[in-house]
Design a protein around this nucleic acid. Sequence first.
DNA 1: TGTACTAATGACCGCACGGTAACTAAGATG
DNA 2: CATCTTAGTTACCGTGCGGTCATTAGTACA
Lengths: 242, 242
Amino acid sequence: MAAENRSASSKQKRRRLDPEDREREIIDGAVAFFAEVGFDGGLRDLAKRLGITHQNLFRYFPTKEVLIDRVYEEVYLGRWQVEWEVLLADRTIALEQRLMQFYRSYLQAIFRYDWVRIFVFAGLKGVGITQRYLELVQARVVEPLARELRAATGLPDTSEVPLLPEETELAWGLHGELFYLAVRRWVYEMKVPDDLDMVVRVAVVKFLSGAPSAMRLLHEGTLRTPAPQPGRRARPVRRNPR
Amino acid sequence: MAAENRSASSKQKRRRLDPEDREREIIDGAVAFFAEVGFDGGLRDLAKRLGITHQNLFRYFPTKEVLIDRVYEEVYLGRWQVEWEVLLADRTIALEQRLMQFYRSYLQAIFRYDWVRIFVFAGLKGVGITQRYLELVQARVVEPLARELRAATGLPDTSEVPLLPEETELAWGLHGELFYLAVRRWVYEMKVPDDLDMVVRVAVVKFLSGAPSAMRLLHEGTLRTPAPQPGRRARPVRRNPR
DNA sequence: TGTACTAATGACCGCACGGTAACTAAGATG
DNA sequence: CATCTTAGTTACCGTGCGGTCATTAGTACA
């Protein structure tokens, strides 16, 4: 975008930038470019967008691979917020509030053209960093959530009974549906609701109302615990405890 | 796979196949190949896997693009089952049973390396067929489900009050979390539970237990309907009505 | 067994890619 | 204003791509 006016007006004197500034421009441009066309995009095309020659890229990044690695860094590591983990663990706030706050903040960070597409492109390419990112999400978001559900449902703590794979999967459900929303928007270009906060609110309420039934079902099936109520009807989790 | 032994043993006489058989081999090989490396994969590499020369591909498909279009056809249109739509609409069966049967059958069709990856590759490329496929899913699966939820929650029919975007989104949630499971498995190579049927069961129970609360929340907020019960606690949907 | 048909191939074309080397010019310094 | 540093450029290389053309060889039939 920023480079378009340059490449449009054909003849312009060469801009001699401070290396830091140029590098910043290149990285930003590379994020946008690779998000759009994927990592098979040519360096000449990237350079054209930046209004420089493709050889100039090599002054800053010795190979294409190094540039791509910088893009990963920029997109992943640069956008994870440790406060999220703190927020999710804060039991002075109702779980519903925590989840809504977290996912609003999280979506603000990732519900973007660049982030979603680069994440998906990198996954298909089999880049290790995406796997590691998802393991981070599982360890810092999904599994903590599953443990919270244990507590909210009155089931034994994970120190007594470790998390079942199906319980982790259950907790992935909330994360997954919101991420899939982002994929529908930025990969498949579908219309999605404008009011993301409302979507988050609905998803969290749905999740917290439904998850306990499913948790009990799981532990009935695997631990042979007698059903606390007939017909394995679930008592909904408390919401808005004001 | 089938072609590997051929390319391994270096010198082999040329196999002269019936064109139909060769075309079949090419298409199957192309599906597997493009699923693995993406549509930027080279025709020479594909041909090598098939144990033929890349020129031979041009005898069957005039351009690479035509071959790729055949791959799309093969993967999408070839694997959609109209019975799914019938099943989902069959109100003689409990909604829970319908959803479980549908998603078990659906996952059997799409929870595969080839399908998931080609679907994602194609989406990133911006191929129209994937958008059309998702619109099909929305019209034939997601929106019908949202309408069922209206009925199950005692809310007005969609003939009186059209579906809100947020209601459609709510119904996408179930679809999304299961699709995202497939993406975690086949794109990001994460460990997921072995027992998919159990995962589906848990997801459906969770969804049906939680969705009514969320539906009511939505209609409170937008239609200003007075809450039927204090504290907008939801009555769970009936399950297993035997 | 010779022959006609055609599936399959080897050699080649133009082009765009990632990457290298030599040159040019912007701007700070004396 | 001459000089020096270095950001940026022009020109080029080997390689592999999608696609074309003339040739080779497997097989069914006379």
